[in-house]
């Protein structure tokens, strides 16, 4: 029976494949639809927030920070309401992380402010004495890639029906329009709250530093 397989490589391979695939077919596929439904009132990420999310991924914040509050009293006391599946409906990719060298960030927007983030990213120990987090000073000079963020918004709107407004359309002209009418004003608001003259000046000049986009994203996590 099985032993016959070792002499017939083709059927051996088929047998191995079926054995491996069985678990996935049973555990993963049936739940695909259900877990993907957004909670009521969940808005897709704005273009600026998406750009910030890309900064979060680029500097790999998830090396040390989770975005998943587990249903224990110690966690809900520390971070707030435990995480629900529907809250992640627009997270592509998910950013749960696997190691908390720093605290969970899933609801960081509830208890930190933009100027706290500005100080923290410039010099973490200035607001958290003893912090082992590196300073991310390059985020104050690097410019966020809002064009790629916009491209992603268009893609998820077209491919997955993520409910963005009518202004999110393919093409450079549509992008420039959204950049002027929405992204830059939103960034200016965040930069003003960050109380950093340099950042405000850059945003006014039409360049959004990475740290501003990142802060917009972190503020959104509630």
């Amino acid at each position: 029976m099985f032993h016959w397989l070792e002499k017939n490589p083709f059927f051996f391979a088929v047998g191995v494949f079926l054995t491996i695939a069985f678990a996935g077919a049973v555990t993963i596929l049936p739940h695909f639809n259900k877990s993907a439904q957004p909670v009521k009132g969940l808005k897709p990420y704005s273009v600026l927030e998406l750009a910030g999310r890309h900064v979060y991924i680029k500097d790999n914040c998830l090396s040390c920070h989770s975005q998943l509050i587990r249903p224990f009293k110690a966690e809900t006391d520390r971070y707030g309401q435990y995480s629900l599946s529907g809250e992640y409906a627009y997270d592509r990719p998910f950013l749960w992380g696997s190691r908390r060298i720093g605290p969970d960030l899933h609801r960081v927007g509830n208890y930190r402010t933009p100027d706290w983030h500005a100080n923290h990213m410039w010099e973490p120990t200035s607001v958290v004495p003893g912090s082992v987090m590196p300073a991310y000073k390059h985020q104050f000079t690097n410019i966020a890639d809002t064009e790629t963020a916009y491209a992603e918004a268009v893609t998820v709107k077209t491919a997955f029906g993520v409910p963005y407004g009518d202004d999110i359309q393919p093409g450079r002209a549509a992008y420039e329009k959204v950049l002027k009418s929405k992204v830059l004003p939103e960034a200016l608001k965040i930069a003003t709250q960050m109380k950093n003259k340099d950042l405000i000046a850059r945003v006014k000049a039409g360049k959004i530093p990475e740290v501003v986009a990142l802060t917009a994203y972190l503020e959104r996590l509630k």
Binding site: H31, F32, S35, A36, S85, E87, Y88, A89, Y90, D91, R92, P93, F94, W96, D145, E147, T148, A149, Y150, A151, E152, V154, T155, V156, A159, F160, P170, G171, R172, Y175
Partner: peptide, 17 residues
């Protein structure tokens, strides 16, 4: 638009996880 190498996952949130 945007960076040529960038892509977005076909799965979202819990499914992606």
């Amino acid at each position: 638009l945007g960076a040529w190498y960038h892509s977005v996952s076909m799965y979202a949130g819990t499914n992606d996880a």
